[in-house]
Design a protein around this nucleic acid. Structure first.
Lengths: 229, 229
DNA sequence: CCAAAAGTGTTTCACGTACACCCATGC
DNA sequence: GCATGGGTGTACGTGAAACACTTTTGG
């Protein structure tokens, strides 16, 4: 079976930059290619857009295939269509970035078919196609996003301590932050709820745990509130 | 002649939201469609991506066809691929917004083929396809952009007076601004050069004219400067 | 008692905001 | 001389940034 058109059409794919946060490290999900071109090299997860799914649906389908999860933060950040970006022919890709809670046990990286790994942003392998550029753009977008919307919490467990958020922001923004000022600003927003629970089994003073009050945030947004860190 | 593929492919287009500024009004270039679907209705300029041009090249080609100009500010802001967004079949579009100087005589709106018009954002006709949503997203993007990068000047003549910039910002942001505070903030940036020239033939006090110092801006950006209004 | 991370306040300075009147020009 | 928009300064309050020591816990 084949499909014919009066004019030639580029192939259309979606690619996903999936960010996770763990051990103070910002990580990205990479796939090792098992066929040419770029066989054996690392690439972003992605695939062709089907005729019966929207772009976002295609991205979520790919994400589910690679991580096992479907409900995660997902945002489109750009499309890439240089004529020679894929040696096999004309392929235009729509790129998304996703944020997942690596602490969530339902997230995995391995599939039977191809090997996938969480790689720290600090030490990435070379990537196939124009994926290094796409990844750089995703990170740039995440940097802006994380300061203007409370998406950082998408990367943390539901219960977290303040230093975890700070380390997350430091990893994303690529610079250190002042502990007292950071906590002051964060708590002043009034969006973190202290839980009746503390860190346990640590050999130093136990940290207070918090959760992000999403409902309150959404209510405030209705009234014109704007998150900013 | 026809082109065959093993799997079906969506058609791929680019659409452009072309903003202009004139008489205190933010305007958009619209095309009146002369064939179905949506015959007679207004739509954004756009067209199919050819196999030998990148996405941005496709957008610039369309822009040149519609406005006569090629060198203008242009930025991609999103791709739209809902399955039923075009009644003729599956069409995915990559959307750009462009900023043009309406004061520049080389900009026109009419082509022989189809009628094109500059319409004020304050009073838009209904648009074909999902173009109202695309336009809304373009405006949202412009609102953010104009406050974080000096793109407002792309919409003004090379020589302008301060109230023109203020009116531009008011039109884009959709709210009034305080004259003294606006001028203070703007001039403090040190990016406007007062010219040896004033407004003429006005029946009130003549305004000082300025130009934007792009070279100085680029030098400052190298050093980590960040424009913000 | 030692190591390790948690937690906590004050001062200083810059910037955002609110606000009202005189100036120059053409008719 | 009047109508029209151009141009200017101050006072106040809020928020950003810099900065160091005490607390708790397990080993």
């Amino acid at each position: 079976m084949s499909y014919s058109y009066d004019y030639p059409r580029p192939a259309l794919t979606v690619d996903c930059v999936v960010f996770g946060f763990d051990d103070g490290d910002l990580k990205v999900l990479l796939i090792q290619r098992n066929e040419p071109p770029f066989e054996g090299e690392w690439a972003l997860p992605g695939g062709f857009v089907r005729m019966d799914e929207s772009l976002e649906e295609a991205a979520r389908r790919e994400l589910e295939e690679e991580t096992g999860a479907r409900e995660m933060f997902l945002e489109q950040f750009g499309s890439f269509g240089d004529v020679h970006r894929d040696p096999r022919g004309r392929v235009v890709t729509v790129a998304y970035y996703a944020l997942v809670k690596l602490s969530d046990q339902s997230i995995r990286a391995e599939t039977d078919a191809r090997s996938a790994e969480w790689r720290p942003m600090r030490a990435l392998p070379p990537l196939a196609f124009d994926h290094e550029m796409i990844l750089a753009r995703a990170l740039a977008r995440l940097k802006e996003k994380v300061r203007r919307e409370p998406v950082g919490f998408e990367l943390l467990p539901k219960k977290f301590k303040l230093t975890q958020i700070q380390h997350l922001y430091e990893a994303v923004l690529g610079r250190t932050l002042d502990k007292r000022n950071f906590r002051k600003k964060l708590l002043r927003l009034g969006l973190l709820v202290p839980l009746d629970e503390q860190e346990t089994d640590v050999r130093h003073r136990a940290a207070q745990l918090f959760r992000f009050d999403r409902k309150k945030y959404l209510r405030l947004v209705e009234k014109g509130f704007h998150f900013e860190l």
